[in-house]
Amino acid sequence: GNIFIKNLHPDIDNKALYDTFSVFGDILSSKIATDENGKSKGFGFVHFEEEGAAKEAIDALNGMLLNGQEIYVAP
């Protein structure tokens, strides 16, 4: 299952995104959108192997604080 994450703190990188979401299941890919200079655009995507893991991550993390910013997590 794919999920979309927005309002990410600029310091959150691909590894931090992966580490945050990997507790919910096996991740096939995770990516933070960046500009041409490699600076985070504040949103990203995680693709879980299983749909159930994606739903669990959405339920658990939507509205949670990550590096002091409330993140939005949705399908």
Rank of each mutant, 00 (worst) to 15 (best):
N2D: 02
S29W: 02
D59I: 08
F21D: 01
E51K: 10
V23D: 05
N62S: 14
L28C: 05
I3L: 12
I12T: 04
I3P: 00
D26T: 08
L65R: 11
Q69G: 13
D26C: 07
D19Q: 13
K15D: 03
D19L: 08
K41T: 02
S29R: 03
N62C: 12
L28G: 04
N7C: 09
E50V: 14
N2R: 01
D13N: 11
E56N: 10
K31Y: 03
P75L: 13
G63N: 09
A74E: 03
P10C: 13
N2L: 00
Y72N: 05
A60V: 12
F24P: 01
N67F: 08
H47A: 03
A57D: 01
I3C: 08
L28S: 08
N14K: 04
N14L: 05
I5G: 01
D59K: 09
K39A: 07
K6L: 01
E50T: 08
D13I: 05
Y72G: 05
I27K: 00
F43M: 06
H9K: 08
K31A: 04
S40R: 06
D19V: 12
A33D: 04
I58Q: 13
Q69H: 15
K41M: 06
T20M: 09
L61Q: 04
F24M: 14
S40A: 11
F4Y: 14
D35C: 14
N2I: 01
G38L: 15
S22C: 09
L8W: 01
A16R: 04
G44L: 00
H9N: 15
H9T: 10
N37K: 14
A60G: 08
D26F: 14
Y72I: 08
S30A: 08
I3S: 02
Y18I: 06
F21Y: 06
I27R: 00
E50N: 12
L66S: 10
G42W: 04
S40G: 07
G1N: 06
E51V: 12
P10N: 11
K6W: 02
L17G: 00
F24R: 02
D59L: 15
G25N: 02
I58M: 12
E49A: 12
K15G: 07
E51H: 07
A33C: 15
F24W: 11
F43A: 03
K55H: 09
T20D: 03
D13G: 07
K15E: 03
I5T: 06
A57E: 02
E56I: 07
E70F: 07
G44M: 01
N62F: 11
N62I: 07
S22G: 12
G25T: 01
G52L: 09
S22F: 09
D13Q: 06
Y18C: 07
